[in-house]
Simulated scan of single mutants.
Amino acid sequence: MKPLFSLCILLLSSFISQAQTVTLLSDDPKDLELFYTTGNHDIASDSYRLLLKNLPDIKVELEIAPTARIDALLKEDRTMCAVNRIKTPERDLYNIYSYPVHLYPSHRLYYFKNKTPLTDDLLTEEHDLISIQKLITKYPSATIGIESGRSYGNALDKQLSKIKEKNILRRAGSDAYQSMIALFQRQRVDLLITYPTVFKEYTTGQNDNIGSVSIAKHPLFIAGHIACSNTAYSQEIIKQINRALLDLYPSDEYLSMHLHHVPNTEQSLLTRRISDLFLKYKLLSKSDFK
């Protein structure tokens, strides 16, 4: 009986180990290195390393896929999760989301000063771009580069949906960040919406003709979530992630990780936003963890 008992224990242990292995999808090939390399790299990869360190019962297999492919996989009935997801009403229909894993300095619009100069009639009193539609109306031949399948947040998604297709160049693929910025630098597109940290990472050389501007009614910081396909196992994974995040939000390690990557001028505001995160989701957790 002892050999049989030992075999049963071995099989059970193997099953538990397999059950706790989660496929985690990303659209950025650099994550294959950054997720497993210590040091300060960027808010996204640093925050996921910190989170996974606090999830000892969950094993992760990181895979790279284009954004559109990730969208499709997260609609399937098998357990799959993805990082750096922005929560939108459409995605919320078929995905379940963690609490925010990090707050990321929000998108900016990049432009060429000599081709699409931002005159006063395009800007608010705070010097934000009034809207993308207003910019395209003034420069009707301008093209804007966006990544296929990517959400830029509810406000920008609505604006982009109103832009004519002739003014849009879409790019898909696992290297979309790098390739889109390369197209912009070669002036294959006139306008680009991306994160400032991403633009800095993938831009080569210095071009004083490139400017950037924040966009009115678009938040200063974007929350990045883990999203999973809607399965029973995914729901348990999300619960474990959320419990870990509630422990991380008030920690010095979580705050300092964020502050390392933002300018001094934004640190006070970001500190308040992280404090708000803890208060909001601590209250929400009372119903989530019943």
Rank of each mutant, 00 (worst) to 15 (best):
P3E: 00
L4G: 05
I9Q: 08
L12P: 09
S13L: 15
Q18W: 09
Q18P: 05
A19D: 08
V22T: 02
T23I: 11
L24D: 03
D28P: 01
T38C: 06
N40K: 15
D42H: 03
S47E: 03
L52V: 05
K53P: 03
L55K: 04
P56G: 04
D57A: 09
K59Y: 02
V60K: 07
L62A: 07
A68V: 09
I70F: 03
C81G: 07
P89K: 01
L93E: 12
L93T: 09
I96Y: 06
V101I: 15
Y104H: 10
Y110H: 01
Y110Q: 01
Y110S: 01
Y110M: 02
K113H: 05
K113W: 02
P117W: 07
L118N: 07
L118F: 07
L122M: 08
H127T: 12
S131Y: 05
L135R: 04
I136V: 11
A142E: 11
A142D: 13
T143V: 13
T143G: 12
S151F: 05
Y152M: 03
Y152Q: 05
L156H: 08
K162L: 15
K162W: 08
I163T: 06
K166I: 13
L169G: 08
L169Q: 13
R170Y: 13
R171C: 08
R171I: 15
S174Y: 15
S174W: 09
D175E: 15
Q178H: 12
Q178L: 14
S179W: 06
S179M: 11
M180N: 12
T203L: 06
T203W: 09
G205C: 01
D208Y: 10
D208Q: 13
N209T: 10
I210P: 00
S214K: 14
I215N: 03
K217N: 15
L220F: 10
L220E: 13
G224E: 02
I226G: 00
A227S: 02
S229C: 02
I237R: 00
K239F: 05
A244P: 03
A244Q: 01
A244E: 07
L246H: 03
L246T: 01
D247K: 11
L248E: 04
S251C: 08
M257F: 06
H260N: 13
H261A: 06
P263M: 03
T265R: 14
S268C: 04
L269Y: 12
T271E: 11
T271S: 05
R272C: 10
S275E: 15
F278K: 11
K280A: 13
D288L: 15
D288G: 10
K290C: 04
